[in-house]
Amino acid sequence: MTEQTVSKIEIKRINLSEANLVVSLFNQYRIFYGKFSDLGMAKAFIDARLENNESVIFVAMEADKPVGFTQLYPTYSSARLSKNWILNDLFVDSDYRKHGIGEELIKTAMSFAKGQGSTFVQLETATDNLTAQRLYETIGFKKQEPDNEFFLYRINVI
């Protein structure tokens, strides 16, 4: 593929009426992790998360084109008495990688979590996804002990 020249990227939180912006990217994300392609199921899943306020989704837009997204799920800490966030999904279209979009999506998620009074953001990635691991560690995430096929990363946002 040819190197894309990326113009200004806008990152915004989406609501249910904007769910279609991330359905194709979410489907590509699932394919990246070895799952089957199904746009209908991808749409239903995203719609349900947003309709039930079960996740927060940020999309990276270049002009009117969605080029990446991240999806956060809440988790709660009784000991910390706080609502925290799991950065569960992060995906950037292959034509738009290596332009800092993934990093900006993560930083937006961290800023959001901090604004919510959260203690931490955590994520997991496959043990063989070295590119993602380097990005997370560059941002400041600390690798936890591996659990079979995934590494757990966490960063404090307070």
Rank of each mutant, 00 (worst) to 15 (best):
M1I: 07
M1L: 08
T2Q: 05
E3W: 03
T5D: 05
V6A: 05
I9H: 01
I9R: 00
K12Q: 15
R13N: 10
E18K: 11
N20I: 07
N20H: 13
V22K: 00
V23A: 04
Q28L: 11
Y29A: 08
R30P: 06
G34Y: 03
G34N: 12
K35A: 14
K35W: 00
S37C: 07
D38T: 14
D47T: 13
N52D: 13
E54S: 11
S55L: 02
V56Y: 00
V59Y: 04
M61D: 03
E62N: 14
A63I: 09
D64R: 04
Q71G: 00
Y73S: 12
P74M: 07
P74E: 13
S78C: 08
R80G: 04
L81A: 14
K83R: 15
I86K: 12
D89T: 02
D89E: 08
L90C: 14
D93S: 15
D93V: 01
S94H: 12
D95F: 06
I101H: 03
G102I: 03
K107H: 06
F112S: 10
A113Y: 02
S118P: 06
T119Y: 13
V121T: 05
V121D: 04
L123V: 09
E124G: 07
E124P: 01
T125L: 02
D128R: 03
L130R: 08
T131C: 04
T131V: 15
T131F: 05
A132P: 04
A132G: 11
A132Q: 05
T138V: 09
T138S: 12
T138W: 03
F141I: 09
K143E: 14
D147R: 03
F150T: 12
F150C: 00
F151L: 05
R154Q: 12
N156Q: 14
